[in-house]
């Protein structure tokens, strides 16, 4: 797993992936996104060499883009997607604690989070926190719904939960 983080600028993805391709890598699943002015990349890379060798392959281009680079040896499981069956949406006035309260409640109610994205919007004076979670649960959705309703009341956040019903055609 190749992780790259640094100040955002145009061309990061193209330059990094060209370097990897020219070095004989094959890319797997990736998440690349801009978070608060930083560009972040987490990317599965298939590479016939040690993590250190991959790091030194990417090193020069990462340095030139002022990106910090990190490589972890992982087992790459492709073709084994776990499908989410629940989506949760949360927003409210920003404050410390929203994420841990919501995810703690969901974990206790039996949700396994597969994907979480959050943004801070609003103005600098009145920031709002917006979070979207996809996960999988074997529990009835009502159980999660009830737990979130309590949280929404006590912690003053808006929550919505809905099933993800995949149409398989």
């Amino acid at each position: 797993m190749l992780t790259l983080v640094g100040k955002d600028q145009p061309g990061i993805v193209a330059k990094i992936t060209s370097c990897l391709y020219e070095s004989g890598c094959n890319l797997g699943e990736a998440s690349m996104t801009r978070l608060g002015g930083n560009f972040t990349i987490m990317m599965m890379v298939k590479f016939d060499g040690t993590p250190e060798a991959l790091e030194s392959t990417v090193g020069p281009i990462a340095d030139s883009l002022e990106l910090r680079c990190h490589v972890d040896l992982i087992e790459g499981n492709l073709h084994r997607h776990v499908e989410p069956n629940v989506q949760v949406s949360v927003y409210g006035a920003d404050r410390a604690g929203i994420v841990c309260e919501v995810t703690g409640t969901l974990a206790e109610a039996g949700l396994n989070i597969l994907n979480l994205e959050s943004d801070v919007g609003g103005s600098e004076e009145n920031p709002i926190y917006i979070m979207r979670i996809e996960g999988v649960t074997s529990q009835e959705i009502e159980k999660l719904e009830d737990a979130l309703a309590v949280l929404a009341r006590e912690k003053n956040v808006e929550t919505r939960i809905s099933p993800i019903d995949v149409m398989m055609g």
């Binding site: 997607h81 995949v166 149409m167 398989m168």
Partner: peptide, 13 residues
């Protein structure tokens, strides 16, 4: 908006 999968596109929705 809804989630879809397809027998002709395995392991992706």
């Amino acid at each position: 908006v809804g989630r879809e999968g397809c027998m002709s596109v395995p392991d992706y929705t």
